[in-house]
Design a protein around this nucleic acid. Structure first.
Length: 522
RNA sequence: GGCGCCAUCGUCUAGGGGUUAGGACAGGUGGUUCUCAGCCAUCAGACCGGGGUUCGAAUCCCCGUGGCGCUACCA
């Protein structure tokens, strides 16, 4: 049996799309499973819309995802070049061959003429296919039109009768009647090939054995098979995989949310989480397994288990899966992935020293369970880095208003100052002791403290996060909170009584004025 | 309009002539904890409709309906 050769053939007219990634993935899995070749070919024949930046982006993103190719840009191979823009003479050669054999003909219709005739056909309720206007021109007529300076395209002569059978690995045989196809263009007036033509020539020349692509291409396939036949090429086998849709059932597009893989990369999705999630869109194992290692996925993947109906892209499930992979990840590895996000915020310097790294590691440990994407770290851990963090106004109103709060904070401050060793265990023991002595439930004691230290109601364990902050910073934050409460008249200072132990005024050194933020997410 | 593809919980799906139609995400409830997250337990939720075939249809066949795609000098 001959070696499996499949390809992914994106056109660089935009950022690599999630749907494109899924197509690339299925091709890659198929190749790897069968120990065949995965080829990357850039279909940049649309000169107007193709951009160099997008080529770079496609290549970078595929690399990031780990979908490595055996032939193509950056690698080379025996069947190159792998950019269609560098193969124009090849397409011309084959077009000439078809011309010579009478299987194609020059068409001199202008776009304007075509448009008008198409409109007319539509008005009359006829199918809007090319009417064969130039199909049977005599040599003299052609020469006349040439002399008039008319530009020509090359059209493929579709037989008027008969049918084309597409053998699809997923859907079985699908038949199309030739007569509904219409003579389509294979070479544009500027000499570049159209998709259907370049695709066939390249797939043949690159010895592609199986074309795996979105099922939006199924209706194009009869045209391509006709070209194979005209050129005396053996067509490959086909597998048209279901498309990915948005929530409303329409083809996935920007209005459903982000569709470019670049977005997910920047947001902090792990490449394998994306791959794993995408593999489940249209494919499954008999036991509906959710998580796969790379080796497992390659081993278990098969086209037979690819479904036929389109799948809705579920952002939430992707997010969940990403979070799962983050939680399962080694903390050290995760911390290193988080650093770029901290740098972007200016929270850590370009060169991370070992003390800073130690802190980042601890923070990573504490926030790991809460991360859904890597960039979440920015919102979750800001208080570790921002000395001047804002207090969630809702949290303040809800938890710091009570009379006992100031005496509690002052008490904690005193005890913390005197702590022989400032670590998690001592902290916990002391804080529990204080809450007991003040006859406060741990909840009542710890919530205000958490807000004093972080500005918010949710987050990692109190002792853990305090330990990371360090004694000095904890004391400073308590002072800062006391000051803030004093200004607001909260926490017992508004009781009207003279300065008693419950008051927030007096005592401490005046810290810088604290900001009160508008209520944000707790 | 023509042609084509598709159809199981809200979503991804398993299953497939006789099943309590299974799992995952999301949602609800309870528990654990200083909060959140997590974790554990638990609940709710589906075979598009109609005909056939059959003792029996969600499963096979046909029709309908719906969704999507193609019908370009885009790919």
């Amino acid at each position: 049996m001959k070696q499996v050769r499949v390809r992914f053939a994106p056109s660089p007219t935009g950022e690599l799309h999630i749907g494109g990634v899924r197509t690339a993935l299925f091709n890659w899995l198929f190749a790897r499973h069968h120990k065949g070749k995965f080829i990357l070919r850039i279909e940049d024949t649309d000169v107007l819309r193709s951009q160099k930046d997008f080529i770079t982006s496609v290549i970078e993103n595929l690399n990031w995802l780990g979908l490595n190719w055996d032939e193509g840009p950056g690698i080379g191979g025996d069947y190159g070049p792998y950019f269609q823009s560098q193969r124009l003479d090849i397409y011309k050669r084959y077009a000439k061959k078809l011309l010579r054999e009478g299987k194609a003909y020059p068409c001199y219709c202008t776009q304007e003429e075509l448009l008008q005739r198409r409109r007319k056909m539509q008005r009359e309720g006829k199918p809007p296919v090319y009417d064969g206007h130039c199909r049977d021109l005599s040599l003299a007529q052609r020469e006349k039109l040439e002399r008039e300076g008319r530009k020509s395209t090359v059209r493929f002569k579709v037989p008027h009768n008969g049918t084309v059978k597409v053998r699809d690995l997923l859907r079985g045989d699908v038949n199309f009647e030739n007569k509904i196809l219409g003579d389509f263009i294979i070479l544009k007036s500027d000499g570049t090939p159209t998709f259907n033509f370049a695709n066939v020539v390249d797939d043949y020349l690159m010895r592609i054995t199986c074309v795996i692509r979105g099922d939006d291409h199924l209706s194009n396939t009869p045209r391509q098979i006709l070209i194979y036949q005209a050129l005396n090429f053996d067509p490959p086998s086909y597998a048209h995989i279901p498309m990915i849709l948005g929530k409303d059932g329409a083809k996935l597009s920007k209005r459903h949310g982000a569709t470019s893989i670049t977005y997910y990369r920047e947001k902090g999705y792990l490449p394998w989480a994306v791959v794993n999630y995408l593999s489940l869109l249209g494919w499954s194992t008999p036991d509906s397994q959710q998580f796969f290692t790379k080796e497992e996925l390659i081993q278990k993947f098969s086209l037979e288990r690819v479904g036929k109906s389109s799948a809705v892209f579920d952002y939430q499930k992707l997010e969940w899966m990403n979070a799962e992979y983050i939680r399962k990840m080694d903390t050290d590895e995760l911390a290193k992935l988080l650093i770029p996000y901290l740098k972007k915020r200016g929270w850590v310097k370009d060169k991370v020293d070992s003390i800073t790294y130690r802190k980042i590691f601890r923070i990573t440990e504490l926030e790991k369970d809460r991360l859904r994407t890597l960039s979440d770290i920015v919102e979750l851990a800001d208080f570790f880095f921002e000395k001047d963090f804002a207090y969630d106004s809702k949290a303040v109103k809800k938890k710091l208003k009570n009379d006992y709060v100031c005496s509690l904070l002052r008490r904690v401050k005193n005890e913390v100052e005197q702590l022989s060793k400032f670590d998690e265990e001592n902290l916990e023991r002391t804080l529990r002791k204080i809450s007991k002595e003040l006859s406060l439930s741990t909840a009542k004691a710890f919530h205000p403290l958490r807000i004093a230290l972080t500005g918010r109601m949710r987050g990692p364990g109190l002792f853990e996060l305090a330990a990371v902050l360090g004694r000095k910073e904890v004391l400073r934050r308590i002072d800062r909170t006391l000051e803030m409460l004093k200004e607001k008249g909260y926490g017992g200072s508004a009781s009207g009584r003279p300065q008693d132990s419950g008051s927030c005024s007096g005592g401490s050194n005046p810290p810088p004025p604290a900001k009160l933020a508008p209520s944000s997410r707790g």
